[in-house]
Amino acid sequence: MSDHASAMADREHRHPGLNLDHTDPEGHASAEPVIFGFWIFLMSDLIVFALLFATYAAMSTQGTGDGPAPAQLFDLRIPLLETLVLLTSSFTLGFVSLANKYEGHPRQAIGWLVVTLVLGAGFLALEYHDFSTLIHEKHAGPQVSGFLSSYFLLTGTHFVHVAAGIAWGMVLIVQQAVLGPTLPVKLRVMRLALFWHMLDIVWIGIFTFVYLSGVLA
């Protein structure tokens, strides 16, 4: 490719999400296949969640059996807190993405990634508290009714995804500290950002269709 053509290509957005473009032209060119591939994974993951939502929608109205209904179990305080924590973590991850794109050294990216993962861990702690209250105090474990099975399946799958994102982020902290902002590491940070933002989008569905709709009897 001539210099002119490559300069043109650098200005283009090659994939969805924050592009490296002019800050790293070489990396920008190699980002396209890996980021696009990751989007295909994200979209298929989203389909899994969509079907869990559909199952939940049917089960929460038809499948309560002799067990409690959603309105008898849920209150909005912890879901609100979880929502704010996860939303803030998505926001702080924005600083990681910007540091990843613009900073020549990884310290800022590592710092914000630590903040993001701590918020993610806080979200998991709140969710774990919610699960254990349901199971031990309200005697509403996953085996009680179809509604509760699908509730734990949906929120549990999201929980596992966030936990996986935290493990992934910890690996990336080590990689950024040891390897520095090399191209493979940068591309991994970009993919973690997409994954994390997508989990926040799934959470919008959960707080709306599980909790907010659930408390309306």
């Binding site: 283009e12 957005h13 090659r14 994939h15 969805p16 999400g17 924050l18 592009n19 696009f36 989007w39 295909i40 979209m43 298929s44 989203l46 389909i47 969509a50 079907l51 939502f53 559909a54 929608a57 998505s90 924005g94 997409l194 933002h197 997508m198 926040d200």
Partner: peptide
């Protein structure tokens, strides 16, 4: 957050996302 917009150079990816939306809509 995900920087998806209607720019021309995003069209392939937009197709992927819209197609996924269609599949999700049909299945749900």
């Amino acid at each position: 957050f995900l920087h998806i917009d209607l720019q021309k150079s995003h069209r392939d990816d937009l197709m992927l996302i819209l197609f996924t939306g269609l599949i999700i809509g049909l299945m749900v």
